[in-house]
């Protein structure tokens, strides 16, 4: 392969892959936020903590019970989803008639508590989590080396994102969800149990965060702050994409991951802020977000 603007293709491809991997996490996390915001009208600030919880549950399953990665990929989202059920029933459900701000403050507080508890027990140094054997190693593609696990993260996130999109946009279950997002009172008057739907939707949204946490465990070490660092960027992604649009959340997630990766190649100093710069521009030009349905 030839050089582009003096950048060796290995570097370019490497950063693109890294961008795509970050984008995978952005996409899965902002998707969960969009699903939750759509139906619950709650800005789930504990999303990062729930992502971290997913990573920790995977680590605990392995460390205390000897249960490996593949089971963790199923069990950890279920466990995180179950904690979401409890949180929704005990606290969030009391806030739906209030302003967004209350849900945001509550979930922010919950995030601080969860992260504080884990810092207290496990410190901040991080726990290592091995890449599952079948996915260790990588492929030499000639122009770059592709680690198998990273390829898997991209594939798994794409499957989960588009599976979720399909379920919401194309199935009967999703039709209930879309309808309840628009007019929960009328959907209830048709005999549908909307409160239960809201509860399960929240559990599903945070389950997605838990899933992302398991995916992340072998790449980044499992540590109590892993979500807190990421979630700020994810919120910027959500603002750019527009709250409440499923496909918007997914595409913006991957797109911004890639843009961030490219920035790291061509202007490394800007890579940490490029997403926030884009956010500022989008907010000026189209405040409802690129895929937003209006205010």
């Amino acid at each position: 392969m030839f050089e582009l603007l003096g950048i060796p293709p290995q570097v370019l491809m490497g950063q693109l892959l890294l961008g795509l991997i970050n984008g995978s996490f952005y996409a899965v996390l902002s998707l969960g936020l969009a699903v939750i915001f759509g139906l619950l009208n709650i800005i789930n600030f504990s999303h990062g903590a729930q992502y971290m919880l997913g990573g920790f549950v995977a680590w605990m399953l392995l460390t205390y019970f000897g249960i490996g990665y593949w089971w963790a990929l199923i069990l950890a989202p279920l466990v995180v989803g179950a904690t979401g059920l409890v949180l929704e029933r005990l606290a969030l459900s009391k806030l739906y008639h209030l302003d967004h701000l209350y849900g945001l403050l509550l979930t922010f507080g919950v995030a601080l508590i969860i992260q504080g508890l884990f810092r207290n027990y496990y410190g901040i140094s991080g726990q290592p989590y091995q890449i599952p054997e079948i996915l260790s190693g990588g492929q030499n593609l000639g122009f770059m080396f592709l680690p198998n696990y990273r390829a898997w993260v991209v594939v798994a996130s794409v499957i989960v994102c588009f599976g979720t999109w399909f379920m919401i946009e194309k199935t009967r279950l999703g039709a209930y969800l879309r309808a309840a997002t628009e007019n929960p009172v009328l959907v209830g008057a048709f005999g549908i149990n909307v409160p239960r739907m809201i509860m399960l939707t929240y559990a599903f949204g945070v389950g997605l965060a838990g899933f992302a946490g398991v995916l992340a465990a072998p790449i980044y070490s499992v540590n109590p702050n892993m979500g807190a660092d990421l979630i700020i960027v994810v919120f910027a992604v959500v603002v750019i994409g527009g709250m409440g649009s499923i496909m918007g959340a997914i595409l913006t997630g991957y797109g911004l991951g890639v843009i961030e990766g490219l920035t790291r190649v061509f202007y490394p100093e800007g890579s940490a802020v490029v997403i926030f710069v884009i956010m500022a521009i989008v907010l000026m030009i189209k405040p409802e977000g690129l895929f937003g349905r209006g205010a």
Binding site: R172, A175, Y176, A179, T181, E182, V187, G191, I192
Partner: peptide
């Protein structure tokens, strides 16, 4: 309902099939 309550994010058939 008076405002009809047709769901914009559902097509006609989905609207029709929505009430269980």
């Amino acid at each position: 309902p008076e405002e009809r309550g047709i769901f914009a994010s559902l097509n006609v058939e989905e609207n029709l099939m929505l009430p269980p």
